[in-house]
Design a protein around this nucleic acid. Structure first.
Length: 408
RNA sequence: GGGGAGGUACCGAAGCGGUCAAACGGGGCAGACUGUAAAUCUGUUGGCUACGCCUUCACAGGUUCGAAUCCUGUCCUCCCCA
């Protein structure tokens, strides 16, 4: 809003290239940006999203933030909800056949995705489209035509196809249609730039290829690195349980951010925070010389971006208290029990929902993972007698707390 | 269309008539330790009304005192040939 005009190339590139891993081809991007500045005609920037997984985490934020930067530079951004592809299943990686989503699910997920993405994107400047709009009406003939523009040899060049093929894993024929469908999106939208993770490179290139086939100016493929998850080894993903969700509670966000290995401090600053570009070199140095404080600041910054400064302060205080001082947090969920009858500790733990089964609760007790008012309970048969009112602090594992309230 | 191999817990992978709730590795969880929810070490890892009981080894039947292990059928996957 402050600056509606598209700035000169140099200024644009500086922002666009922050954190990018690859731009194919860069010279063409420069040309497009130059032209956009000259004519003040915004470029069409496309990003596809998968509505089967509506929970966004910092990994997604890397690309969404890139999209946001294009918005701030005055370009036109299009978020594609991949509802059509979602209703059939998922193409890459996962070998699980996902249950076909219903129309309602997809629409609901798409909405939820946009809602979360709006924490990063400027919703006013985001055009939302559903790819079923143009993919669903395609006839079998249209699909055959489309498929004729690509070869099997090139298709199995795709990294995960190659690997799965070598591993003798199943590859369903229809999976070959996904890159084509995604490419068709680019053709339909006449995109100038498509954003994606580096794992999307193949698919983005297919879009570029198809646009050429259809006589369009081919899109620039701009790839971001995959954000490594909190485990420090694999890409951030819900299925590896190494993610930090953008909807997560401030305390969890803070704690999880703090658990990343030191080597990730800088990449996180670069890719997921809004820290001023100019300060990055300084951060890189500090991450090495003073990892502890730099990481705390990172955790604070991330929390602040999604919950505001006040909550970030609270999250920090919470962490200091519970993890460093091993104290009890100020706030915790409360569970009320009637004293009309006695209660076995096992049942109580299970009823808090902190563990999935009473076997698990029993295990925790046996292993010393259960604390009541600061004292370890190791007897699985421990129980609260009837008729005694009172409050107790229950600690389950490392960081789950609950206040047990007994009253008649 | 023909021939061969195979489907085991969260994942990978042993087991091939009882001693199997099922070796081993990874992951998860917990304990100790720590600037950290990292690293490391140790323990643990189907469920329950819990020293016993119940349900699991693709699915459905069958043989047997007894099956993940043998037989029959079904579904699915991979490899070779056409």
């Amino acid at each position: 809003m402050i600056n509606m005009s598209i700035p000169p190339v140099k200024e644009q590139l500086e922002i666009i290239e922050r954190g990018t891993i690859e731009i194919v081809p860069r010279e063409e991007l420069v040309r497009k940006l130059e032209n956009a500045h000259k004519t003040q005609k915004p470029l069409r920037v496309k990003l596809g999203c998968d509505p089967t997984r509506p929970d966004l985490h910092l990994g997604h934020s890397v690309i969404l933030r890139k999209m946001r930067q294009f918005q701030d530079l005055g370009h036109h951004t299009i978020l594609i909800i991949g509802d059509f592809t979602a209703m059939i299943g998922d193409p890459s990686g996962a070998n699980k056949t996902r249950p076909a989503l219903t129309r309602e699910d997809v629409v609901a997920n798409g909405r939820s995705y946009f809602e979360q993405a709006s924490k990063i994107l400027d919703p006013e400047k985001t055009e939302i489209v559903y790819n079923s709009e143009w993919l669903a009406p395609m006839s079998f003939e249209d699909v055959i035509r489309l498929a004729s523009h690509y070869t099997v040899a090139r298709m199995i060049e795709r990294d995960d196809f190659t690997k799965r093929y070598q591993n003798s894993d199943t590859i369903s024929l229809h999976e070959f249609l996904y890159p084509l469908a995604q490419g068709q999106d680019s053709v339909h939208l006449k995109s100038d730039i498509e954003l994606g993770g580096i794992d999307q490179k193949f698919n983005l290139l297919v879009g570029r290829h198809l646009q050429k086939e259809f006589g369009q100016s081919p899109q620039i493929c701009l790839m971001m690195p995959l954000l490594v998850g909190t485990d420090g080894t694999q890409k951030m993903s819900k299925s590896y349980d190494n993610y930090i969700g953008i909807d997560e509670k401030p305390e969890d966000m803070y704690g999880k951010a703090l658990s990343i290995p030191d080597e990730l401090i800088f990449p996180y600053y670069e890719l997921v925070t809004d820290l001023d570009q100019g300060r990055l070199p300084e951060i890189r140095k500090r991450a090495a010389s003073d990892p502890r404080n730099t990481k705390h600041e990172l955790a604070w910054t991330i929390t602040r971006m999604y919950h505001g400064a006040e909550m970030a302060d609270q999250a920090r205080a919470h962490f200091e208290k519970t993890v460093i001082q091993k104290d009890v947090p100020d706030e915790m969920p409360e569970f009320v029990f009637s004293t009309d009858s006695g209660h076995g500790l096992l049942d109580i733990i299970r009823e808090t929902g902190f563990v999935p089964s009473s076997s698990e609760a029993r295990r925790l007790i046996t292993q010393g993972g259960i604390t009541l008012d600061g004292e370890k309970i190791t007897d699985p048969r421990f129980h609260f007698e009837a008729g005694r009112d009172g409050e107790h602090i229950l600690k389950v594992g490392k960081r789950k707390f609950g206040k047990l309230i007994f009253k008649s």
